[in-house]
Amino acid sequence: MGSDVPVHGSSQKAEAPLVTGGTQRISRSRAGLTWWQRFGEPALVVLCVIGGWELLTRTGVLPAQDLPPATVIGAAFIGDIQQLRVWEALGATLASWAIGLAASIIVGIPAGLLLGSSRLSYLLFQPSLEFIRTIPSIAALPLLILLLGTRGLELAAAMTFLGAVWPIVIQTMYGVRDLDPTTMDAGRAYGLSRLQLFTRIVLPSALPYIATGLRLGAVVGLLLSVAASLIAGGKGIGFLIVNASFSGVPELVYARIVLTGIMGLGVTLTLVAIESRLLFWHASHRRAVT
């Protein structure tokens, strides 16, 4: 661990996957964790939280008519996931998320590569990008509704795109900028063509940044896809949450919120797993931060 002191290392992973745990300073590999440590204890924590909620609502500390006890929410949840329309709504949300994410990748990565490759374009565009990126995508919703309507998947997909494209572009830009000059010089010394330099040195070096950007973008994108149907209607799970709210059935509202959280959790876990599989060769991953 000590021999590998990358100057870039600590700052490359703006976000490290959390859920798979694992230690770093004590060199215990992932295989060294017991089942209890990986799953049992966290599950216990979750159970305690649920238990706490149950206690607070049953004893009246929290108003049970408006914040139903966990068991009531649980019952509503079990009943709800048997409904077809819930799965259709989840499908619609995930579909618009996937479309928006794909679009943001197709647009974002090339744009980031382009903008990051020259110092001039970097200076030209970086301030504007940083400015636009701070505007909450939610503020664009009224405009998007006018342009796209709320009926189909387009609105949620557009919201996903707007949320996901920024981290992807910006992270890709940084990835291209953050090249180790020594490696580039070595490449040139070996007589690699510009294209080869790009595909063999620039791209792989930028890959962890791009991966981080993708992960950030995917998470934000999913949030926005749900938020789009929550605020504007349409076919997603957000609309079902609002519908339950209009119907005055709070346990169903929270059951569907829990479902949304689980969906998000599932997506994050999947992305983390994919990322560690694809980037196992890179120094930052070898440090068992995963």
């Binding site: 959390l18 859920v19 440590q37 990986r38 204890e41 998470v219 929550l230 957000g238 919120i257 949304t260």
Partner: peptide
Amino acid sequence: LPRFSRDVSPMTEFVRAIPTAALVPLGLIL
């Protein structure tokens, strides 16, 4: 504390996946 992180992450990742707009009613009641 890796152990703390392992134990608490599921909860934090879960809450993190819920849009703010869905949490407004909860905030209102509390």
